[in-house]
């Protein structure tokens, strides 16, 4: 942890590359600052991030798009677990 970042209250996602999740309702989500996909099937998606793994479970999960910065997922979201 960098104390300057804490003192200046700078956003952690910018300074440390911490993952950022935006969930829009039950059916849509955008994940930023992920590193790679570990596992993907229609009921779960496990992503690797700097702070550990994120597991998203649901039904009919579909990756709308993904690039080096962010990815958009669609489907019926049920759980988000930080592993």
């Amino acid at each position: 942890m960098n104390p300057i970042v804490d003192k200046l209250m700078l956003p952690r996602d910018v300074c440390y590359g911490a993952p950022l999740l935006h969930i829009t309702g039950k059916y849509e989500g955008i994940i930023e600052n992920y590193k790679s996909i570990i596992e993907y099937d229609e009921n779960s998606l496990i992503l690797n991030t700097k702070d550990g793994k994120i597991k998203i479970t649901g039904d009919s999960l579909k990756i709308e798009y993904f690039n080096e910065n962010d990815m958009k997922i669609k489907g019926s979201l049920k759980k988000i677990m930080l592993l």
């Binding site: 229609e42 999960l61 990756i63 798009y65 993904f66």
Partner: peptide, 10 residues
Amino acid sequence: KMKIWNICHQ
């Protein structure tokens, strides 16, 4: 950096 979209598990 390939452009891919609509990834769907079958």
